[in-house]
Design a binder for these strands. Structure first.
Lengths: 126, 126
DNA sequence: CTGTATCCGACCCGATACTG
DNA sequence: CAGTATCGGGTCGGATACAG
């Protein structure tokens, strides 16, 4: 059989779209927040993911919901209440998420030092 | 002691910059390619990461080099030869990289199905 | 409270042409 | 071969105003 190889390095492979979905700053932070905190309301999410604008939060949540990573539950009350949480599919990403964010937190100093060194050498050498 | 908490969800934490560096489609694919293939020349990289433009490849490599994830070795020959590979810091990302890309490859169908369903329900319901 | 709609500047990114 | 320089359309993303 002619197995059409699944590979993110192949630009015709659908997995590329999945990478594009996850390989996004706001997506990762929103997923990570839901991964850590469990169920969160819209306002809680905005306060948890510091610095995200209303527009980007809504846009990111819609895209994650559309791709099956996040579920959205609307409670018909007043004032409106909407809860977001990871779907089972989204939960299967937890491991990756915590490792990725953990790496970022654990290596921020190494990265900062490398950047300073690079900028010092290649920056304007007056 | 007043430990200034390291947290990617805090927009004032430097780890945010690290997330922004990695949480990028091309960065992840270039890092993954180097992670899988080891040392690669510029042209090899461009053929490996299918669909990346010259501009984005160069730009991505510079940024990764600047932040200490990738090393660049120039051989003074003609025609020019430049080799890229992961630094030790970059290699410590391999685990995350392979898990992330593996997830994308392993769940592309689930994601595709979720998206089709969503678009069917919320799309234009003629 | 949880959104949607619009404006608009900034930046991304591919295409193309050119260089050592 | 391995880039750099430039152009220009497209998209991102914040700010603001408004709605159910």
């Amino acid at each position: 059989m002619v197995a059409n190889t699944v590979d993110v390095l192949n630009d015709r492979c659908p997995s590329r779209q999945v990478i594009a979905l996850i390989a996004d700053k706001w997506s990762i932070l929103v997923l990570y927040a839901l991964s850590r905190e469990g169920t969160l309301r819209y306002g809680q999410l905005q306060r948890t993911v510091r610095g995200i604008s209303q527009k980007m939060l809504t846009q990111t949540l819609r895209e994650l919901e559309r791709n099956g990573l996040v579920s959205r539950m609307v409670y018909e009350v007043v004032p409106p209440q909407v809860e977001y949480e990871l779907t089972d599919l989204g939960k299967s990403l937890r491991r990756v998420l915590s490792e990725l964010c953990g790496w970022a937190q654990g290596n921020l100093e190494q990265v900062a030092r490398a950047r300073e060194l690079y900028d010092l050498e290649k920056g304007n050498p007056t």
